[in-house]
Design a protein around this nucleic acid. Structure first.
Length: 213
DNA sequence: CACCAGGCAAGTA
DNA sequence: TACTTGCATGGT
């Protein structure tokens, strides 16, 4: 157990404080957001979610009964709207087929089984599955995203070309298996990444992780 | 104007 | 198996 991971977390938490993720009112809303935010700025997703709320279509039942074209129009600001319409429908079909449309029922299922089930849904890959497991269902998995990879690469903790699960295993091996820790850590990595670890123009000078370079 | 954002699936060789 | 490409809006 390398203390560097714990140290990074403590440094981030000390400097940015608790993030209170996921920004949503219900677990179902978390799931919708997780699908809509694929390769997409959260600001655009927020608009789409706001549209869904305005249309009273932010519960499993109301969203599932929405005509496809209407759904597409509502989520348009999130981009990739044709693909995301299909992905939302695939998830909803899964949710109703396997759990009678109940996210709470879903939650009673074990982590590993659930993860495999989610990955079998077209449009849900490793990151989206883990975001759902952690932030919507409270399961102890670490979410690896582009910022996680970039930050750990820039601090030479990984090479950068490892696959999703290699990075996830490395991190989970070095931390306590704790939902709240995983929740805050990933959120902190994203926030610090947005501010200091962009693809280009990395404004590293004031990054709280400066010393780990 | 170019580039990027809290990915994923399908196609190619 | 290991790359590459399509998907699309809105902000910098």
């Amino acid at each position: 157990m390398k203390p560097v991971f714990k140290k990074i977390y403590q440094r981030l938490y000390a400097s940015l404080g608790p993030q209170g993720w996921w920004p949503a009112e219900t677990p179902f809303e978390v799931i919708i957001g997780a699908i809509l935010t694929q390769n997409t700025n959260w600001q655009n997703v927020a608009k789409a979610i706001s549209n869904l709320k305005e249309a009273k279509a932010i519960t499993a039942r109301t969203l599932y009964s929405l005509p496809r074209k209407r759904l597409t129009r509502l989520i348009r600001p999130a981009g990739y709207y044709n693909i995301k319409t299909e992905r939302l429908e695939c998830f909803l079909k899964f949710l109703f087929t396997r759990y009678r449309g109940s996210v709470r029922k879903m939650r009673t299922q074990g982590l590993n089984t659930l993860r495999l089930q989610l990955l079998s849904v077209k449009g849900i890959g490793p990151e989206t599955a883990d975001s759902i497991l952690l932030y919507a269902l409270g399961k102890p998995v670490f979410v690896v995203d582009a910022y996680t990879r970039r930050i750990f690469t820039r601090h030479s903790l990984i090479k950068g070309d490892e696959d999703y699960h290699a990075i996830q295993n490395l991190i989970m091996k070095n931390l306590k298996r704790n939902v709240q820790l995983f929740n805050e850590f990933h959120a902190l990595l994203v926030e610090v990444g947005k501010k200091f670890c962009r693809k280009k123009n990395p404004r590293c000078a004031r990054c709280p992780l400066q010393q780990f370079k």
